[in-house]
Design a protein around this nucleic acid. Structure first.
Ligand SMILES: Nc1nc2c(ncn2[C@H]2C[C@H](O)[C@@H](COP(=O)(O)OP(=O)(O)OP(=O)(O)O)O2)c(=O)[nH]1
Ligand SMILES: [Mn+2]
Ligand SMILES: [Mn+2]
Length: 385
DNA sequence: CATAGTTGCCAC
DNA sequence: AAACGTGGCAACTATG
């Protein structure tokens, strides 16, 4: 994968400057200098020196994670407010902006990640050294980093991402009438949920709203409790309970499939993907309730996450073969779970897009259509547009 | 000096 | 009583 090192260097300078300023502001607001990257030191400043309330605990003491800082900031405290900003910048700078250039191979001028075939228990690939499956995109600063992933001269990047992939697989496996009907009509359940949560018509759902609804959909399906949901949505516990109740009333076929899947897993000791990949789940027979409950959530997730992994692997094999047979110059460069990224000679844009989309959408024939959206651009962000 | 555990957080 | 799932990595701290 080619990256624009000048662009990253520019971002590094900008982030570095902001970090220095934030650091000074935090020391001033806290009335003391300390290592901002040290959780123990931060704890003593927030919860001892400044006497702020402990809102959450970890194994070793008071938590200082984002959710805690956000609440403290909302109470009008300056240090946590500045720290949220500091955390974002420091995470992006240390993990991506400053780390990625060191991975560029001097011979090829590119970053060569490792895709691990047995990295995930569900059948997903994982990526390491560096991980190119978790490149930032969700914040403006993150997006700027992703823009440094570029095509070489004369080529474009082509991206292809499955629409609502695990929801479609869930429609197929569960046969839930509302799910199946939604997809038959070309509907968008993430958008539907967003409209409900935010109380707006579907055509007024923003990308940010849909993204939040995506998390809500998956978290609800995979067993999130009302307590966590209430926190995530900033609603009361009762409202959260009611949301979950209504969700599974609307999608009763989904609830039934989840229950059946857990029961079958308990019986057999494993769950299976659509294509027969198994994951054994010994936790289901554990004496400890917490361990068993964890096993149950794993049992519901793995068939879906694993089927999505199987599906894209089938597509990858067919695309690889088709590109070779047709003597195309397009090269598969990344897989990000339900997305493929290619370097494509400009002249092949249209034909490669069509070929990739077709093979991904026909990798399996399900009860609902598989839909893939493709895009091309000079960098990874523009290629998703 | 190297290694392991913890915390926190990026993505899908 | 309650806990979405799957990963990898940086920084810090404790231990050897
Ligand atoms: N359990 C869980 N799974 C997730 C989460 N985020 C993503 N996934 C899984 C399920 C998704 O179908 C799959 C691909 O992620 P995407 O970001 O492409 O979302 P999806 O395909 O559902 O929607 P899309 O139409 O592409 O925007 O990864 C999450 O927060 N929790
Ligand atoms: Mn997708
Ligand atoms: Mn995706």
């Amino acid at each position: 994968m080619l990256i624009d090192r000048e662009r990253l260097a520019e971002i590094s300078r900008a982030f570095g400057k902001e970090l220095v300023e934030l650091e000074r502001a935090i020391y001033r607001a806290a009335g003391t200098d300390f290592n901002l990257n040290s959780t123990p030191q931060l704890r003593s400043v927030l919860f001892e020196k400044l006497q702020l309330p402990t809102l959450k605990k970890t194994k070793t003491g008071a938590s200082t994670d984002y959710e805690v800082l956000e609440q403290l900031a909302a109470m009008g405290h300056e240090v946590p407010k500045l720290l949220i900003e500091y955390r974002e910048l420091s995470k992006l700078k240390s993990t991506y902006v400053d780390a990625l250039p060191g991975y560029v191979n001097p011979t090829t001028g590119r970053i060569h990640t490792s895709f691990n075939q047995t990295g995930a228990a569900t059948g997903r690939l994982s990526s390491s050294d560096p991980n190119l499956q978790n490149i930032p995109v969700r914040t403006p600063r993150g997006e700027a980093i992703r823009r440094a992933f570029v095509a070489p001269p004369g080529a474009v990047l082509l991206t292809a991402d499955y629409s609502q992939i695990e929801l479609r697989l869930l429609a197929h496996l569960s046969g839930d009438p509302a799910f199946v009907e939604a997809f038959a009509q070309g509907g968008d359940i993430h958008r539907q949920t967003a409209a409900i949560i935010f109380g707006v018509p579907q055509d007024q759902v923003t990308p940010e709203m849909r993204a939040r609804a995506k998390t809500i959909n998956f978290a609800t399906i995979y067993g999130q409790g009302a307590f966590a949901l209430s926190r995530q949505l900033g609603i009361t516990l009762d409202e959260a309970k009611e949301f979950i109740r209504q969700y599974f009333a609307r999608f009763a076929g989904v609830r039934a499939w989840l229950d059946r899947t857990v029961a079958a897993a308990r019986e057999k000791g494993f769950v299976e993907t659509i294509f027969g990949r198994r994951r054994y789940i010994p936790e289901l027979r554990d004496r400890n309730f917490n361990v068993r409950a964890f096993g149950e959530r794993t049992a519901t997730n793995s068939p879906l996450q694993g089927s999505a992994a199987d599906l894209i692997k089938i597509a990858m094999i067919r695309i690889d073969r088709a590109l070779a047979e047709q003597h195309l110059g397009a090269r598969m460069v990344l897989q990000v779970h339900d997305e493929l990224v290619f370097e494509v000679p400009e002249a092949e844009q249209t034909s490669a897009s069509e070929l990739v989309k077709r093979h991904m959408e026909t990798a399996a024939e399900l009860r609902v259509p598989l839909v893939v959206s493709t895009g091309v651009g000079r960098n990874w962000v523009d290629a998703k547009g």
